[in-house]
Computed example of a mutant assay.
Amino acid sequence: MKILVFLALLGLHSAAAVTHSLKYFYTASSQVPNFPEFVAVGMVDDVEMIHYDSNTMTAEAKQDWMKAVTAGDSQYMERQTGGLRGTQQSFKANIDIAKQRFNQTGGVHIYQYMYGCEWDDETQEVNGLRQIGYDGEDFLLFDLKTETWIAPKPQAEITKHKLDNDQAGNAYRKNYLSQICVEWLKKYVNYGRSSLMRTERPSTHSLLQKTPSSPVSCFATGFYPDRADMFWTKDGHQIHEDVERGEILPNHDGSFQMSVELDLSKVAPEDWRKYECVFQLAGVKDITIKLDKTVIRSNEGSSDFPLGAVIGGGVVLLLLVVGIIGYFLWKKQIYLI
C-alpha cells in the first residue's frame, strides 16, 4: 500500500464501529511551498488528538478529552515537545540521505513514517502497522510476525540490513505494536468515548445534476464520523459499473461530506425507478433516495447548487493528504535511514 494513498483513504474504511485505531504519522518535506518542514500527528479512530509542526515547535492537544489523559502528568506535553524537536532534526537528515540514495538533488521530496495499532473490541484481535515511505511510495515495511523489515526499493536495502541486525530494537517494536500501543488505544478510547462514539445523520442527502446530460451525483453532508459508505443500487443490489465514488471530505465544522455519481447515459428512462442511492453510517438506519427526476436539484438557473462545497472540500482534502503526518514516542524509533 502506498503511504500517500493510505493517508488519502483514512476515512474510507468499513463503517464497523467495533474496530478502533491509534496511529501516528511523521512527515518531513523538502521545498514544499508554504508548508512546515516537519509535521507530526497522532490520531485515535482517525480523529486528530495531538499535533506538532516545525513552525510552532510545540506539541498541542487537539481534543478536550486529552486533558483527562494527561491530568496526572503535568510535564507530558513538554516532554513531547522536546522529543519532537529532536525528531524534527533527524527527519530532515533522512530526506538528505534518501535524496543521495536515489541520486537526487533539488526538487520537492517527502519522507514519511507511520506506525500504530488496530484493536477489535469484540474479538480482541490486534493488528500492528509500521512503515516508511518516500515520495509517495513504500520504502520500508515492518513484518510483525518475523520481526524483520521488507525493502520494496533497492535503495532501502542498506537500512533493511541495519534494522534486521537490531534484534533487540525489533523485539521492542513488536512489543510496542502488540501491547503498549493497544493499552494506550484503550485508554484514549475510554477518555474520548463520548466524542469518538458520537454519530450524526447527514444534514443534507440529495441528488444533484449539473446539466440534464451530466451524471447524477448523490450528495451527503453534515454526517459524523467519517466511517461512512454511500453507493448506488439497482433492484436492491449494489452496482459498480458506471459509478464514480468520491472521497470523504471534511467540512469546516468538523463534520464530513461525500458524493457518488451515476452515469445515466446507459440507463433507460423506464429503468430509473430501479435505482437507489444508499447512505450507511454505523448506528444509523440506512438512508435511501430513489432515482427520480422530480427530486434532482440542478444548477441551471439556480445559485444554490452546492457543488462549490464539494470543490472546496477537495482543496481541504489535498491539504490534509499533505498535512496528515505523524507523531511522538521517539524512544527506540527509526530516525536515520
Rank of each mutant, 00 (worst) to 15 (best):
P269R: 04
G314M: 11
A28F: 02
L84W: 09
N299W: 10
F279W: 02
V216K: 01
W232H: 01
Y335C: 14
I150R: 02
L12T: 14
C181M: 03
Q100P: 06
I180W: 00
L317F: 03
P154Y: 02
D286E: 07
G246N: 12
Y176F: 12
I337F: 02
M230C: 06
Y172W: 08
L320T: 07
G312M: 01
R173Y: 07
G136Q: 01
S29T: 13
L144D: 01
Y24S: 15
G192L: 06
N94A: 08
C218T: 08
E241M: 13
A151T: 06
I132T: 04
T105E: 05
D164N: 09
D46L: 15
W119E: 03
K23E: 07
I158S: 11
E78W: 04
Q104I: 11
W119K: 07
D138N: 14
V69I: 11
N299M: 15
D73G: 09
I324T: 13
Y134S: 09
D143C: 09
F25V: 11
T233S: 03
G72C: 08
L163C: 06
G301D: 08
Q88V: 12
L264M: 10
T70M: 14
L177D: 00
E122P: 07
G222I: 09
R193Y: 07
S178G: 07
K274S: 09
S21Y: 00
Y111F: 09
Y275T: 03
R198C: 12
V32I: 06
E183W: 00
Y113W: 10
G323Y: 00
M57H: 09
T27K: 06
I334Q: 04
K2W: 11
Y24V: 15
V295Q: 01
V18N: 10
T294D: 09
V316M: 08
V47L: 12
W119D: 01
I95P: 05
S14N: 09
D286S: 07
K234T: 05
T204L: 12
K210F: 13
V44I: 15
I50G: 08
I287E: 01
L208Q: 01
A98H: 01
S303D: 13
L7K: 12
T199A: 12
M43Q: 10
P250Q: 05
H13T: 15
A282R: 00
S255D: 04
A168D: 08
T81C: 11
A28N: 04
D271C: 11
V267T: 00
N175H: 06
T58Q: 13
D263L: 06
V41C: 10
H252T: 10
G308H: 08
G86D: 08
S302R: 08
K290F: 04
A8G: 15
T87L: 14
N55G: 11
E60A: 15
G254E: 04
I334T: 10
L307Q: 10
S206H: 02
K153D: 13
Q131I: 13
Y176N: 07
G314L: 11
T27Q: 05
A71H: 04
D164E: 08
K67C: 11
Y52L: 05
D226E: 13
V315G: 10
Q88G: 06
S255V: 08
